[in-house]
Design a protein around this nucleic acid. Sequence first.
RNA 1: GGAGAGGUGGCCGAGCCGGCUGAAGGCGCUCGCCUGCUAAGCGAGUGUGUGGGGAAACUUGCACCGAGGGUUCGAAUCCCUCCCUCUCCGCCA
Length: 424
Amino acid sequence: MLEIKFVRQNFQKVVDALSKRGDSAKLNEFIKYDENRRNILLEVENLKNKRNVVSGRIAEMKKKGENTEDLILEMREVSKTIKSLDADLSESEGVVNDLLMSIPNIPHPSVPEGKNERDNELVKKEGVIPDFDFEAKAHWDIGEDLKILDFERAAKITGARFPLYFGAGARLERALINFMLDIHTTEHGYKEVLPPFIVNRQSMIHTGQLPKFEEDLFKLEGWDYFLIPTAEVPVTNIHQGEILDESDLPVYFTAYTPCFRSEAGSYGKDTRGLIRQHQFNKVELVKLVTPESSYDELEKLLANAEEILKRLGLAYQVVTLCAGDLGFSSAKTYDIEVWMPAQNTYREISSCSNFESFQARRTSIRFRKKGVKGSELVHTLNGSGLAVGRTLAAILENYQQADGCVIIPEALRPYMGGMEKIES
RNA sequence: GGAGAGGUGGCCGAGCCGGCUGAAGGCGCUCGCCUGCUAAGCGAGUGUGUGGGGAAACUUGCACCGAGGGUUCGAAUCCCUCCCUCUCCGCCA
């Protein structure tokens, strides 16, 4: 959410920024309703002031035993008026707030212009793309041949887009989770968190999934609760409504959670394999930082996520999302895309974003500076470190051998009881 | 699920027979004074949101004492609904 004052005072700037995103929100309504809201506010506040003053006087008069009958009668009317104006006000506020909630974040100046993913800007390529002297198999074929992945049976249990791992596959997934968490906690300074996987509506609003994207979420029937689409939601909400001390910052959290996404609107896409599932595992990185440091912190966050791929020996590239491809709450996002041999292309495996104060304002997370009056909103960031299912898919495809087995990357072997390869 | 207790400012904690209480007191923090270090001491300040005035320091209106309704001229204080926390009992991974 942007600050209402900011929108009012920088109206054209906001409109321009939104058009950069290709978002043509009906902002002209905003001005109209906001003005209306403020007019009512002025009127109602004057009346409330009168009520407060007169009520005080009534108290004094009563103490002296004077007659207050007339004043009370008069105030009775005033209160009635206030009540009806308050109703109008909350209606206007509702409209203004809905509009405000549906305005996405303003892209950072360094974000390239563009409409969609094709306009994303390549930052760098790392690692060596494997050169096979046989035809690379897709990870779903590898997984099924090795009997470590079983999509058909998963579909019987639940339906399409759910994973079922067996044996070394299940263990590899678990190994990856532990490997990632260990590196982030022991080497990158993150505190491990194991949060709820179900959150309430408010938390979803705070991080920006709601009110706009409810159709992407799984909702619990009979509850106003949702399955988390990412650990970002519970973890960013840990300090909601709190005022932190500057010395508490930066806060670094890492969390493993499963993630649940309805994937509405992506029916034909990535129907096979682990790439696009309704349920997948992810190790997430979340930061709360000072505004001055947030872009440095974004670079560090990106490096922390990259480190995992480096240690796993997977080739990848980093792109800066263009304005049109930017997520709703984000001011700037880097995507890390891992090389997938069978598809002969890079696929997103991590998304690292700086939300600046956008989420902090909704979530009300602020901090106090030493020697400075008042408080300030923190900046929030998060990134995948990494998407586990996609990492496993990348390992299967990049480490496959001609005979159908898959070599386990060196870094993971301690987590696999020393196992060096997966074979049927 | 049954029976109780409670949710107040950065924290602890009064107020809760309705009205000079945005909220005592303490702690913490900031600034100043004092003190040859540290500690102690003294004085002042110290919530958030939103609107107005001011270049600014600041000043001023309104709202906020878990959330939402209600009663009242007036509610942190009374009533209703909901949420959450704690204790005991029951049940249970």
